[in-house]
């Protein structure tokens, strides 16, 4: 499979510390489950129009409404798990936000969503590889190839070439 590499997979998101956008007239802070310390200090340091909200579901209708109401000069800050922030970012893009209006904090957990290329099921809470697919039950090699549309990493059967040759269990992060 197309997953062995020297320099890392460039589709794997890289995160850097988030700063307030000084040119923004409105700041919307969205967190999954709970506001993180990093987000709280950004929020506290923000003087102008601001709003914060916590959602457990990235597709919550109130969240989608607030994304649709974002002004052109607004900035969106996201905190939570990786699948959550990318799903909200995807909704934000659909609502017309530009990439430079969206700022993501380092994910709070290293748990991944894993896309099974054989049955297209997405398995949640993946922290090691190989990992059993919740759809078809195959042991999947967890790769670093990330699809923003699915907010998930690419997985394929780990021992398809030789059933007796199962890779050793390793943590992914």
């Amino acid at each position: 499979m197309q997953t062995e590499q020297l320099n890392g997979v460039v589709s794997k998101p890289a995160y850097s510390p988030v700063e307030l956008n000084p040119k923004s007239s409105f700041h919307l802070f969205i967190a999954e489950q709970a506001v993180t310390g990093e987000m709280q200090s950004l929020f506290d340091g923000c003087g102008v129009d601001k709003e914060s909200a916590v959602y457990s579901d990235a597709s919550d209708s109130r969240l989608l409404e607030s994304l649709a109401a974002m002004p052109l000069t607004g900035t969106l800050y996201l905190a939570g798990s990786e699948p959550f922030i990318w799903r909200v970012a995807s909704h934000a893009r659909q609502a017309g936000l530009r990439p430079d209006q969206i700022r993501m904090m380092v994910p709070v957990s290293r748990e991944r969503h894993l896309f099974c290329c054989h049955c297209y099921q997405i398995t949640e809470g993946v922290t090691y590889s190989p990992f059993i697919c919740s759809g078809c039950g195959l042991s999947l090699e967890v790769t670093d190839h990330f699809a923003r549309l699915h907010s998930a990493y690419f997985g394929y059967q780990a021992n398809a070439e030789d059933s007796s040759d199962m890779p050793e269990k390793r943590e992914v992060g």
């Binding site: 499979m1 197309q2 997953t3 062995e4 590499q5 020297l6 320099n7 997979v9 460039v10 589709s11 794997k12 896309f115 290329c117 297209y120 790769t143 670093d144 190839h145 990330f146 699809a147 923003r148 549309l149 699915h150 690419f154």
Partner: peptide, 25 residues
Amino acid sequence: ADWSLAFDAGMSFKEWHGPVPMAHG
């Protein structure tokens, strides 16, 4: 040759070439 449209759909040029070794550098 071993790539999935269902997974790669919507990706940018560099993203869908993400797994290719050596060439990015």
